[in-house]
Design a protein around this nucleic acid. Structure first.
Ligand SMILES: [Mn+2]
Ligand SMILES: [Mn+2]
Ligand SMILES: [Mn+2]
Ligand SMILES: [Mn+2]
Lengths: 224, 224
DNA sequence: ATTATAATTTCGGCATTCCGAATTTTCAAG
DNA sequence: CTTGAAAATTCGGAATGCCGAAATTATAAT
C-alpha cells in the first residue's frame, strides 16, 4: 500500500512506540525479545523494524544491547497512548461497549484517526481525565503515571481505592467486573494466604476471593 | 502486515467493490481504465487486483471485456457504502465536522471498524436514513438509489427540492454550502443560459448563479 | 581463559501492493 | 479482410512486513 503521508509515521511504528514505552516502565533498555513477545511477532521482525525506527530518530538502538525511546519517540508514544485511551472512552461512553471490549476494539482503528477527530472526540466526551480502566489520558510524558501499589501488596486490615486495572486481558476484565471491581471502588483486605495464595477482601459490601494474578492487575491507592 | 482475519475481506478489496458499484451505475461492465482512474492507481495494478477479486467470487471478470459485481460482491459493496455513510453521519452529527470534511475523514478509518461498532454507531445516531449529503444509508442493494434529475435538467420556472449532492469534491461542497444549497432546500430555476451556460435560481429567498458543473452535482426532485 | 547457552542479528524467502515498459488483444476504419 | 490505435494484460522490479534457519554476539559458568 502506498502511504498517503511521507513525513508522518506509519501505523506500525506508532504501535512499536506504544509497546516500547510500556515495557520501558518495567525495564530499560527494552530487549528485542520482550518487544517481540509484546507485539506477537518474531524477534527477527522486530530487529528489522528497530533499524527503521532508529533511523527516524525515534529510538536509541545499540545492536545486542536493547533500545530506549528518544525524546521524540517518547512524545509520539504518549500521543499514541492518549489517543488509545480517548478512543476507549468513546467506545464505552458513546457507544455503550463494555470495558473489556473497548481495549481491543480501539486497537482496530485508533491509528487511522486524524488529529482533528481525536481532538473533537475528546471535547465531545467532555475532556475526560482517565480511560475506562482508570489510566490517565496524558497530554505529556509526566502524565503517564501508574499507581505503584497493587491490591496484592496490601496487608490484611488495610483499605484502598481501586485506581486502575490492567486492560489487556479481556476475560480477566470481565471476571473483575463480575466481582464488582472497577476504578473508584473501595476494597478492604481481610486475609491473604502465603506463597502467592489468594486474598480475601470486601469489595463494596461483598466478600470476595481474589487470586494472585487478578490482585496484581489492580492498581490501588491506600486509604488512611 | 499480517492480516488478522483470513476468510474476511482485505480493506483494499472493499474499496474496489465500492468503486465498481458506483461506476457500474453509470456503465456496466466497468472497464479497467475507469476503475484505475477512480482509484487513482495504474491500470496494471487494477488488473492484478481484479484477478484476486475474481478468484474470491466477488466480480465477474473477463479479461479485456470489463467486470461486473457478482451478487456476493454487490452485497459487500452495499455493506461498505452503508458503513461509509454512517461514519459520515457520525462525523457531522456527533463530532461537528462540516459536510465537506466528513467524506474524506470517513475514508481514513471506516474500513477498520468492526460490524459491532457500525451497528452501535447507527443506533447512537438514531438510525438515520441518509448521509449528510442526502444519499440513503442502504440495508440492501435496492436501497442504493440516486435521484436521476439534477438541478441543471430543470427548465426556467420549475421548482425542486434538493435531495442529495455529490460528496467527492470538498471545495465544491464548501462552495455549495456558502450558496445555501443542501438536502431539503427548495430551489426555483429562473433562467438558464444555452450551451451549458450558468443557471439563475432562487435558493431559499436568495437569488443565485449556479454553473453547469455545480448544477449537475445536485440531485433534485421536482415539485408539483 | 574457555565454553556453552541464550539472545540477537543476518539472510533468503514469501506475500502484498504498487509501478512502468513491453506485449497482446480488441475493434473500428479503410 | 487488413491494419493501426487504444485498451488491457503480462512482465520484471521496487518497497514493506513478516517469518524460519543459520550465523553471530554476549555473558554467565566452569
Ligand atoms: Mn487499553
Ligand atoms: Mn484503558
Ligand atoms: Mn461520501
Ligand atoms: Mn455522503
Amino acid at each position: 500500500m502506498k502511504s498517503s503521508r511521507q513525513p508522518s509515521l506509519l501505523d506500525q511504528h506508532c504501535d512499536y512506540l506504544k509497546h516500547i514505552f510500556r515495557l520501558q516502565q518495567a525495564q530499560s533498555p527494552v530487549s528485542t525479545s520482550a518487544l517481540a513477545e509484546s507485539l506477537k511477532v518474531a524477534p527477527s521482525t522486530v530487529t528489522d523494524t528497530l533499524k527503521k525506527l532508529s533511523q527516524k530518530g525515534l529510538i536509541n538502538y545499540t545492536p545486542y544491547h536493547g533500545i530506549t525511546l528518544t525524546p521524540k519517540g517518547e512524545k509520539l508514544a504518549v500521543k499514541a497512548i492518549r489517543r488509545h485511551r480517548i478512543v476507549e472512552r468513546f467506545l464505552t461512553d458513546m457507544l455503550g461497549f463494555e470495558w473489556h471490549e473497548a481495549h481491543e476494539e480501539a486497537l482496530r482503528f485508533e491509528t487511522q484517526l486524524s488529529d482533528e477527530v481525536e481532538r473533537r472526540l475528546f471535547v465531545a466526551l467532555n475532556r475526560p481525565k482517565v480511560c475506562p480502566h482508570g489510566y490517565p489520558i496524558p497530554s505529556k510524558v509526566e502524565d503517564v503515571r501508574v499507581e505503584e501499589t497493587t491490591l496484592y501488596s496490601l496487608e490484611p486490615g488495610e483499605r484502598a481505592e481501586v485506581i486502575s486495572v490492567k486492560d489487556d486481558e479481556p476475560e480477566l476484565l470481565q471476571f473483575m467486573a463480575s466481582l464488582g471491581i472497577k476504578p473508584g471502588v473501595k476494597i478492604k483486605v481481610v486475609a491473604k494466604d502465603p506463597f502467592k495464595g489468594p486474598l480475601q477482601a470486601v469489595v463494596g459490601r461483598n466478600r470476595r476471593t481474589v487470586g494472585w494474578h487478578l490482585a496484581n492487575s489492580i492498581h490501588v491507592r491506600k486509604l488512611d
